[in-house]
Design a protein around this nucleic acid. Structure first.
Lengths: 198, 198
DNA sequence: TTGGCGACATACGGCGCGTATGTCAATTCG
DNA sequence: CGAATTGACATACGCGCCGTATGTCGCCAA
């Protein structure tokens, strides 16, 4: 076996573990997910897991990084589809709300993540979401569209509101019926950032 | 020993367990808090705990109910001190942000609570916070101050933003320096609910 | 007085995590 | 070209912790 093949095996092992972990964490939650079952479902043992990710928290970190990357890609795409910068910002936020409807993201990123790893704003490389939101707001401020508010603070608030809204929507009896209520309220609220009402 | 004395013993036992649980959950987090240590610190054993609260989650529920009651009392007081209804609403929200700076509330209500018990909006009797916020917004809408937005949705967003802001502030290097940035951004954002800018 | 009951304490079983140790192939080096 | 080494994983062990089953002791009712 060549070194290249070994590297590919390694990647495949990590990918299998990540897939199994995403499924297990999403279904049972972090605390109730057993590493034995998880690795067995991937056709491996706990040895592979501790070798690749250090410990259970390390595995969660890796899963969250993966989810975060997927989220930010979709949100940016939504933003870039919009006609104006301000609408782009709104679409980006609405995309977050809708993304957070997936049970996987709900459970792992919004519920267990903060409880196990602490406040998301302290996560090292993760939460690209927050960074892009901050950058977007900063740009909008510099272009004169928004009131001169602290971009980082506003991004935090916006993200918090959006994710909390998603949590609410997803836990509702009829998520699809509640979603527009949340989105409308979100648009209304975020208009407070605008210099002139509109 | 009279029956009244027994009832008082019972209450005292529950109170001692709740005090110990608040301290342990706040310091170590729910998952890392050992029921053996916790009860021993209260001068009792796990027997008393399972008798009074059912299981570990039941104890957390009781602690959260206690914290929630304290929070809503302080927030209402802040609201009632304000000059106008709208300022009262703002003061109520700012009170939430500042209350959430306490490590006890941070860790227990914002991090571990949702992870263990699920989305806060589904908690049965708890989250009096949310209900009072919803009522306040509804009143403000009916009095014509706010745009006719869905009160429940707006309350969820406002609460999410406020609590997330608190999480951010408390985890910052210098919380006292970051707090005004968060509060300013919050006032700016919530002005989006107003019918006319002001 | 005695039987039941309520409030706890104690004892037991099982599970899950982390680590220490073992295995086996691939690479490296004398 | 064979021995030592390294890396990727598997296996084995110990420990702590939770939930429950069982025990104990004082009070109340008949």
């Amino acid at each position: 076996m060549t070194v290249g093949q070994r590297a590919r095996m390694m990647k495949e092992t990590r990918a299998k573990l990540l897939r199994a972990a995403r499924a297990a964490f999403a279904e049972k939650g972090y605390a109730a997910a057993s590493m034995d079952e998880l690795t067995a479902a991937a056709g491996l043992t706990r040895g592979a897991l501790y070798h690749n990710f250090g410990d259970k928290k390390g595995l969660l970190r890796a899963v969250i990084a993966q989810l975060d990357a997927e989220m930010v890609a979709k949100a940016r795409a939504a933003r870039d589809r919009a006609a104006t910068p301000w609408l782009g910002f709104l679409e980006e936020c609405v995309a977050y709300i809708e993304l957070a409807l997936e049970p996987e993201i709900q459970r792992i990123m919004l519920l267990d993540g903060p409880a196990v790893l602490g406040d998301p704003s302290q996560w090292p490389e993760q939460t690209a979401c927050l960074r892009t939101t901050t950058e977007t707001i900063q740009t909008l401020i510099e272009s004169g569209l928004l009131r001169p508010v602290d971009a980082e603070a506003a991004a935090r608030l916006i993200n918090g509101a959006a994710l909390d809204a998603a949590l609410w929507v997803a836990a509702a009896d009829e998520p699809r019926a509640v979603l527009p209520r949340a989105v409308d309220a979100f648009r209304c609220l975020s208009s407070g950032l605008l210099k002139t009402d509109g």
